[in-house]
């Protein structure tokens, strides 16, 4: 049984990687969770998960220089597949192999979270959304972030990927988030999973190279991430067909 989520936002700076790891850790209470840095051009999951000196990364796997198993690390109750940060690694990586990586990982886990690039301007950037069963859209309560989030949703649904929900992040205390999230939901195919407050703890965690839920598990932001995980209804597909499903993931014929 496996469900693949792409954690996506049209715009950078929304705290997508922090959110991916936090959701992953919160879901790991109930499921076996694998987190993959699918932002192969601007990887930073490794810095969040204390893996900055990881020797083998997704870049090596995508370059066909290593098997997936060599790039998986057990950290903080998660299986983490970090990506490298070198330009050479990015150049040599074949993004199409991500399909096989996901298919292989799908055999061994309940949930895969793909930390996706904050862009829609290239095949590589969009591929994680195509491969995923559903997306979690990370938004800030600002006009640019919401309009970019809408674009992500439309790309996803065009490519037959559903919307699991919205995660408002970096929400300031004075923002009337209830009204904004209620109005935002009218245009999205999924509910608001949680509103995560802007958090000094999250910045500290990032600087310390530790996930927020390990660094400050009781802080308000961490609590909101746990609520988001709770609100996410996981729809696990059958294990048997998982590999085939992702190896053959294509855009629907109707296009």
């Amino acid at each position: 049984m496996v469900e693949v989520f792409a954690v996506a936002s049209g715009k950078g700076g929304t705290g997508k990687t922090t959110s991916t790891v936090a959701l992953g850790m919160a879901l790991a209470d109930r499921y076996d969770v694998t987190v993959v840095d699918a932002d192969t051009g601007m990887a930073n999951l490794l810095f969040h998960a204390g893996l900055s000196d990881a020797e083998t990364t997704l870049h090596d796997v995508l370059a066909d220089d290593a098997p997936v198993e060599a790039a998986t690390y057990d950290r903080f109750g998660l299986t983490v597949v970090p990506c490298g940060t070198s330009l050479d690694g990015f150049r040599d990586a074949n993004p199409d192999r991500l399909r096989d990586v996901v298919a292989t990982l799908a055999e061994e886990t309940d949930i895969i979270l793909l930390d996706s690039p904050p862009a829609l301007d290239s095949r590589t950037a969009v591929l994680p959304i195509v491969l995923a069963d559903r997306i979690v859209v990370v938004l800030q309560p600002t006009i640019p972030a919401i309009s970019d989030g809408l674009k992500v949703q439309e790309y996803a649904t065009t490519y037959d990927t559903d919307v699991a929900g919205l995660l408002f992040n970096k929400v300031r205390a004075s923002e009337s988030i209830e009204r904004v999230s209620e109005k935002t939901e009218r245009y999205f195919d999924g509910p608001t999973l949680a509103s995560v407050p802007e958090s000094e703890r999250a910045r500290e965690a990032r600087r310390a190279g530790r996930p927020l839920l390990a660094h400050a598990p009781e802080c308000e932001a961490a609590t909101a991430y746990r609520a988001a995980a709770e609100a996410l209804t996981v729809q696990n597909g059958a294990a048997d067909d998982a590999a085939d499903r992702f190896r053959s993931a294509v855009i629907p014929e109707s296009l």
Binding site: I143, R172, A173, S174, E175, S176, V180
Partner: peptide, 11 residues
């Protein structure tokens, strides 16, 4: 700090 005017524009 964000604030009412700001949010009214988002709304």
């Amino acid at each position: 700090e964000g604030g009412a005017t700001e949010q009214s524009a988002v709304e």
